[in-house]
Structures are given as structure tokens and as C-alpha cells.
């Protein structure tokens, strides 16, 4: 695995600026062209909203989320506004005299019907989007994801219509520096856990990330090895429970290379907070080189070096 580690760190440079990122974090996902791999999608301090993420699905979910949020804000303004006006205008201390009416069929009909219409307006796009989330057909790659206490196991099943047999299983554990710092009484500040490119990746970095190609629809088969875990990359909006005895499927097509981080989201025991999900998305050519290097360990170092100096060789044509 050492060659692959060289590759991963070698192609990374720091392209981080801390300015103004806290507002939504969207600037991070949307910033500039990446010729090298950086963490494009970490949570940022004071972040208040969802990030747009890196897939069409995550963008669509972000849009739906924002529409729902603004609908709620608008309804809130109407309801709380009416209440506020009542509180100001109809005070006994200002001499308000109570009316005696207690019923209006017309009003009650309106505020039954209007919410129904609003809800239909939200439910329709949500239905179509749910269908898209469930549509794992046409994937070009399949990876099996298995959750264990407390690490992730990744097995490549197929790629480009061919079974992948020689690539060794990836065991994806919490990175050692985080693991040292997280112990009770370790004396190591979580703030001191910093990756080579300056990311504060405490509890969000692993020994060996999952590596997938950019621009390829990847299907994940997700299951659990002992208890229920949850595999989630927020920026892919790919999220499914990893349940023993059940094989769930989900998918992601990530166009932008980079490092994407998430966490196990289902309580799975004492080290639940210590099993991050890290996915490294490589440009397709680099991924192909990486994959063949994995399949043929003898040429590993050489392939890694080749991948390093040829960043954008077009991958095999695919319809």
C-alpha cells in the first residue's frame, strides 16, 4: 500500500483559504478548477447550512432543502407575524375588547386547503428525486462496503463491465494521529491533528480511503458485518444503513476529483465517532493507473509515479 500512499500525498497540494467559508461552505465545493486533489468538502467552522455537494443528486437535494426551508420561513413569517400583530394590537392593557366569534368555516377551509397545495408542491419534486436516488441502473462500477466495529471494508466487485478480482480489500480505519488524540487523557489537542495539506481532519481521516474514479456512476453495495452502521458521504448525498444480513444499494457519480469525507451515522458502539468515511475521487486515467497498480503489485511504484506525472490522460472510452 505504500505506493498508493505516495500517490495520494504526492498529488495533493494545499489550496485552502479560510476566508468567508463559514457562511455556507458552498464556496468550498464550488471553488476553482482543481488540477490537484484537495479536500474539497470538509465541514467548516460556524457552518450553518448544507453544502451543495459534488453530485447531481446532492445539488438537487440542496435545491429541495432550500425550497422547503424558504417555504417554512414564509409560513413562519405569516403565522408568527399574525401572532405578533395580535400580541401588539389586542392587548388588554391597551383597552382591547375581546370579540366573541369562535368559528369560521371559510377560514378553516382555506387553511386546510392551502397547506395541502403547498405540500403537494413539495412532494412532487421530492418524489421524482427519490426515484432518481433509487435508480442504480447503468452503473459502471460496483464497490461493496461493509461496516465493522469500527472500520470500513471496501471490496471492488466490478469495473467497466469486468469483474475486479485482484485488487486487495481496503480496510479503512481511523487515521493513527486522530486515534492517538481521541483517547481520554491523551493530552493531544484535536486541533493539532492536521493533514499534510493543512486540513483539520481530526476524526475525519482514515488509514486507507476508498478510491473511485471521477465521472463514473459507482454503485455501492452496503452491508454490515456485526451491528448496524451507516455509510454516508454528505457531499455525494449517498447514505444508506449498513445492516447485517441485508445488502443495500446506493450510487454516486462524482465529477470533481478530490477527497470527500463523511462519518458513520448509526450508533454502533463505543467508537461510533471514530469510523470516518473517506473517499478519494481520482481523475479517470489516474484511477485506471492506480487500479492496475493494485492488480499488479510488482509494478506498483512505477505505476504510481506514472500516474503522478500524467494528470489528465483520457480514460478508456465509454458509451
Amino acid at each position: 500500500m505504500s505506493g498508493y500512499s505516495n500517490l495520494s500525498w504526492g498529488v495533493m497540494t494545499m489550496s485552502f483559504s479560510n476566508c468567508k467559508r463559514w457562511v455556507t461552505g458552498m464556496a468550498v465545493a464550488g471553488s476553482g478548477l482543481l488540477t490537484t486533489l484537495t479536500a474539497v468538502a470538509d465541514p467548516v467552522p460556524w457552518q450553518m447550512n448544507l453544502r451543495k455537494g459534488a453530485t447531481r443528486i446532492s445539488h438537487d437535494i440542496w435545491d429541495l432543502h432550500m425550497v422547503a426551508l424558504w417555504v417554512c420561513v414564509a409560513l413562519g413569517i405569516v403565522v408568527f407575524g399574525a401572532m405578533f400583530i395580535a400580541i401588539i394590537r389586542f392587548r388588554k392593557s391597551r383597552g382591547a375588547v375581546a370579540a366573541t366569534w369562535n368559528h369560521s368555516s371559510k377560514l378553516e377551509f382555506i387553511w386546510t386547503l392551502v397547506p395541502v397545495l403547498i405540500l403537494i408542491g413539495l412532494a412532487l419534486p421530492a418524489t421524482f428525486l427519490t426515484r432518481d436516488i433509487y435508480d442504480t441502473t447503468g452503473s459502471q462500477m460496483t464497490v461493496k462496503v461493509t461496516g465493522y466495529q469500527w472500520l470500513w471494508r471496501y471490496d471492488y466487485v466490478s469495473y467497466d463491465g469486468k469483474p475486479v478480482t485482484k485488487v486487495p480489500t481496503i480496510w479503512s480505519r481511523l487515521a493513527w494521529d486522530s486515534n492517538t488524540a481521541r483517547q481520554l487523557g491523551s493530552g493531544v489537542s484535536p486541533y493539532s491533528v492536521v493533514s499534510k495539506n493543512g486540513d483539520h481532519d481530526y476524526l475525519l481521516d482514515v488509514t486507507h480511503p476508498l478510491v473511485i474514479p471521477a465521472g463514473v456512476k459507482v454503485r455501492f453495495l452496503i452491508t454490515g458485518g456485526d451491528v448496524i452502521h451507516g455509510w454516508w458521504v454528505p457531499d455525494f448525498a449517498t447514505k444508506r444503513d449498513a445492516i447485517p444480513g441485508i445488502m443495500n444499494d446506493a450510487w454516486a457519480k462524482v465529477d470533481k476529483p478530490g477527497i470527500y469525507r463523511g462519518q458513520c451515522y448509526v450508533l454502533c458502539g463505543q467508537d461510533h465517532s471514530a469510523m470516518p468515511v473517506v473517499v478519494k475521487v481520482l481523475p479517470r486515467a489516474q484511477f485506471n493507473a492506480w487500479l492496475s497498480a493494485q492488480e499488479n503489485p510488482v509494478t506498483l511504484d512505477k505505476a504510481a509515479r506514472t500516474a503522478e506525472v500524467t494528470p489528465s490522460k483520457p480514460g478508456p472510452a465509454k458509451g
Partner: peptide, 22 residues
């Protein structure tokens, strides 16, 4: 709400420093 939207799962005793402020 903000922590959740930023991606912090529930039922965790410990978290990344980005979640520290909220």
C-alpha cells in the same frame, strides 16, 4: 440544526474541530 446540516451525526461523544464552535 446547523451542526446537523454541516454533517455532524448524533450520539457522538467527540467530533471534528469544525463542529466545535456551535
Amino acid at each position: 440544526h446547523f451542526l446537523g446540516l454541516a454533517g455532524m451525526p448524533r450520539r457522538m461523544p467527540d467530533y471534528n474541530v469544525a463542529f466545535a464552535d456551535w
